[in-house]
Design a binder for these strands. Structure first.
Lengths: 187, 187
DNA sequence: GATTCCATGTAAACTGTTACATGATTCC
DNA sequence: GGAATCATGTAACAGTTTACATGGAATC
């Protein structure tokens, strides 16, 4: 499981409080490993109990006060171990693909608006990634860290590019469809 | 929540027993919505209790005997409703991308073999999809159901193509790397 | 002092995974 | 009749999601 390692990575990049982490999981790290604030607080508690992170000594607050964490050597070692370990890729799970497969059986009625909406969402995400690329990875720079992070961003860009193209392709199929199959109802 | 709808789709395509469904979730439907036999049996029980499916009247067996299900009209209606309803796309969660982001901080030591292994796995999956395309979608055929199912298969092919290209790109970066960053250890 | 926002959390419900249990059938 | 396989499940746990709770700080 990867949430603790996502948090360790984020904290190594920059020590943060729970809410700051939550914000960064809404962009940046969250682009390929999302998490809610509830997950993050729970996991911070576990990681601290395991001695992988600690509260920054400068701030030792009460409930409701900001509390920032940093990674301890044991945490960095655990992250390095996990990064190098072998992990099987998780099988794909995509509801839109499932819905189209279902539509082949029960009919395509009503699905087109959501295809358009998804297309817009993916176009927006793609534009955001491109903007990050323009801003953070200007041509010429190539420290190793930059190259690795750029590689990850390229994956996001290429994936969103795939989805926008595929959704456009799907919508094109729809406008060509003669009648709606399967919409004759049960029986 | 999509597992019940994946099962309804599979049962509409062909009434099946739990084990037959499990087999089909290891290929076909499972290529974009995977499930284990435990999930499937639990969900079959729920769907039957809700009146969306029923045991085929021809076979009413005891424990350990094969038991095939079919979809009832209410089940078909629920699937059509779900297919047409609006759903937000789930955010991406990919451990390999996270690992590369972590590698930018803790170093790339040891990650290359698993990149190669993933490349092989994705190449194998891509070959399998292409074989299915060759077998099931010869040029010329285009009933609406076929076109929808082909569209879904194309998504699988394009996604695996993306991953193989991206992993090759990642490995190329690695062979060019001068020194291993971050591997100087904690501090 | 009421409302809103910041920040940290708890609880419960739901999903998914791993390990195990049980009966029926087939094959030697 | 013993072992392997088919087929259907149960139980326990881990991970995720949703709803709610609590306290402090800022603002009106």
């Amino acid at each position: 499981m990867s949430l603790p390692h996502a948090i360790l990575t984020a904290l190594l990049e920059k020590p943060s409080s729970g809410l700051e982490l939550t914000r960064r999981f809404d962009r940046s790290i969250g682009y390929f490993w999302s998490a809610t604030h509830q997950q993050i607080y729970r996991e911070l508690g576990k990681l601290e109990a395991e001695g992988l992170i600690r509260v920054l000594p400068s701030e030792q607050p009460a409930r409701g006060q900001k509390k920032a964490y940093e990674v301890l050597p044991a945490g960095r070692a655990e992250l390095a171990r996990w990064t190098a370990a072998s992990h099987d890729p998780r099988p794909l799970r995509d509801a839109m693909l499932l819905r189209l497969r279902a539509a082949a059986v029960v009919g395509t009625d009503g699905i087109e608006p959501d295809l358009r909406r998804h297309l817009e969402l993916h176009e927006r995400q793609l534009a955001e990634y491109r903007e990050i690329e323009r801003r953070d990875f200007p041509p010429g720079r190539d420290s190793t860290e930059d190259r690795l992070r750029h590689l990850v961003l390229r994956a996001g860009i290429d994936l969103e590019t795939f989805w926008t193209e595929w959704l456009r392709h799907a919508l094109a199929e729809f406008t060509e469809l003669p009648g709606q199959p399967g919409s004759a109802g049960p029986g």
